[in-house]
């Protein structure tokens, strides 16, 4: 089973939930956690295991070979992403904007734009007993998160093929990188906080997940602050809330130091246990 942990709003506790849930669940069975928040991957700050592997993440971009090029400009014309341009007597490639669609390369009449590998980030794989963590990290300056996310998912299929329970930590928001992490999930957990901002962004996230025909449940973080908006919305929409993580300054402090919460906060462990029971009954 693949479970994606997502949130509309950032900073609602996505990484806290995925790292703590993964570590607690792994006390019972093997878990694979994929950190797909490749712009700001933080799982490794909280889960420190034995390094298993490190790989360079590559994407393919066109490389201009001037000798055969007739400067016809077709490459610039076909690129929908403004990633290749004819400037005077030169063809310039903007790697950060390239989506690796191969159109310019495949359509070039003189074969002057072979696709070559370019580093876009790194992947780290580490292990703690029953828990495999694979973290994707986009290089600073790279703008396209989706190709890096795809690579991390491919790595899991190749290197941990028998993983039967996969947790995926998604980026915040509702745009293309989030879709990439939700579209092959069996179930989605949306984590939010009970505030007007949390509610506003939760609604967008729920619409996104529904648009992809996925089942989902909501976890409330910082339960006790804010108002009843999120609870009322979930009840109106028939969304289950299998766990509520209490608002507690001590939890925030434990998190700030890069430590797992549940080993020192029994309330957190209890809520996570509810969530595990809920997810195992799916």
């Amino acid at each position: 089973m693949k479970i994606t942990i997502a949130s509309g709003k950032g900073g609602t506790g996505k990484t806290t939930l995925s790292t703590n849930l993964a570590a607690l669940w792994a006390e019972k069975r093997h878990i694979t956690l994929l950190d797909l928040d490749v712009e700001e991957p933080n799982s490794g700050l909280f889960l420190k295991g034995t390094p298993i592997n490190r790989e360079i993440l590559e994407k393919f971009i066109p490389e201009w070979h001037a000798d055969k090029c007739r400067l016809c400009g077709l490459c610039q014309e076909v690129c929908e992403f403004n990633a290749i341009m004819k400037l005077g007597t030169e063809i310039m490639v903007f790697p950060e904007l390239c989506h690796s669609c191969h159109a310019c390369s495949g359509l070039c009449p003189t074969g002057s734009l072979p696709m070559v590998a370019r580093e876009m980030g790194e992947l780290y794989h580490y292990r703690m007993d029953n828990l495999d963590v694979v973290e994707g990290r986009l290089a600073v300056g790279e703008e396209q998160a989706v190709p890096a996310i795809k690579k991390v998912k491919e790595y899991q299929k190749r290197e941990i093929p028998d993983a039967d329970l996969i947790l995926m930590d998604s980026p915040p928001g509702t745009s293309c990188p989030v879709i990439e992490t939700v579209k092959d999930a069996d179930f989605v957990i949306l984590i939010t906080e009970p505030t007007p901002f949390g509610l506003h962004d939760l609604k967008l996230a729920v619409e996104t997940v529904r648009g992809l025909d996925k089942e989902m449940a909501v976890v409330i973080n910082r339960h006790g602050i804010g108002d009843d908006g999120v609870e009322n919305y979930c009840s109106d929409e028939g969304l289950q809330i299998p766990a509520r993580i209490p608002q507690d300054l001590n939890i925030a402090k434990t998190y700030s130091a890069g430590k797992l919460i549940y080993p020192v906060h029994p309330g957190m462990k209890e809520e996570l246990s509810h969530l595990i029971v809920f997810l195992e009954s799916l």
Binding site: E40, N42, L45, V140, Y255, A257, G258
Partner: peptide, 14 residues
Amino acid sequence: TISGWHDLKRLREL
């Protein structure tokens, strides 16, 4: 927080 610090450095680099 550890993640605030980590993400600040990445943003600064950008």
